[in-house]
Amino acid sequence: MQRRLKSRKEEQKEIQYELKQLRLERNQDLGTPSEAWLRERLKQLFDVLQESSPAANKALSALVGGEIILEENEIPLRKRNYFRGKFRLNVRGVYNFLTGTSALVEGTVQGAEVMIDFIQPDKADQQREIAKRMYDAEEPEFKIAEALGVSRSRVTKLIDEVFELRGEKKPDGRSRRSRLAVKHKEPPPYQAIAEEVMKLFREKKEYGEIAAALNIDRNTVTSSVKYWHEQRGLPVPDGRTRRKSL
């Protein structure tokens, strides 16, 4: 019963489609079509093509001249191949659908070739896209790994694959790392205590006094002061000049 009902519904859609075409042919105005009429007919064509019915098949066949050529292609880094469909829009078929007739259109040619790749979404492709976008935004690899929920070694492999697929050379990792604002998952000591160092710095404490107060090395104090100012785009104070002013 269900199969028969489905079949009858498809037949109903086909008959409704044919009725629309007959009514349009009967009421056809041979004058210049208006923009509103054209938009309405294109919308009807869109609606028909959204359905899974004989009417949709018939409309699609008319639009592509009755054939879509498929060719099999390999996908880099994937085991399965994919199909690429090629076809040309048939101007005569479009005209006949819009006007609801089967009249010949003199002097018409087929449209430009259209190609569609039938590729199922792949998780690795999505990961590579996100990884490359974050990589270009100067995000460290540990942040990319957190965003994707994968290991850092997996992120490295994804980035390597992106450059391989594009035929480009991957930039040197050490040079890129030096440009990053955040280089470590856990900030190094000189970054972690920068605020504490600057608090004593503003209290006119000498670097040696700051180091003793925080139980750190004097060089760590110097690095903290430099880091704090560079993060804010401020000039790093000269130690000798500051000592004279204290």
Rank of each mutant, 00 (worst) to 15 (best):
E51L: 05
L63T: 04
F46E: 11
L70E: 11
G85Q: 07
A55S: 10
Q120Y: 15
R84E: 12
R41I: 00
L70Y: 10
E71T: 13
L60W: 12
D117G: 01
Q110M: 13
G111C: 02
V91K: 10
E71M: 05
I119V: 15
F46S: 11
Q44R: 01
A56D: 00
D125T: 11
R133K: 14
S61M: 09
E67G: 01
I75D: 09
Q120L: 15
K123W: 14
F83P: 00
E139K: 12
L49I: 04
A112I: 04
L60C: 05
Q110I: 07
D125R: 06
K123L: 15
E106H: 07
L98M: 02
R88G: 07
F97C: 04
I116N: 03
K58D: 13
N90C: 11
A59C: 03
Q120G: 12
A131F: 09
Y95R: 10
L89M: 06
P121W: 09
E113C: 03
Q110N: 15
K43S: 06
K58I: 06
A103Q: 08
G107T: 08
A124V: 14
T99W: 05
F46N: 12
V48S: 01
V114F: 02
K79C: 06
K43Q: 10
R88H: 00
E74V: 11
A124W: 15
R39A: 08
A137F: 09
M134H: 11
I68S: 03
L98D: 02
I119F: 05
G100T: 01
K86S: 07
V64F: 03
L89T: 02
D136R: 04
G85R: 05
P76C: 06
R128G: 01
Q126E: 15
F87N: 05
V114E: 08
I119G: 10
L42S: 00
K132R: 12
Q50R: 13
G100A: 05
D47G: 00
P121R: 13
E40N: 04
A59Y: 00
R84W: 02
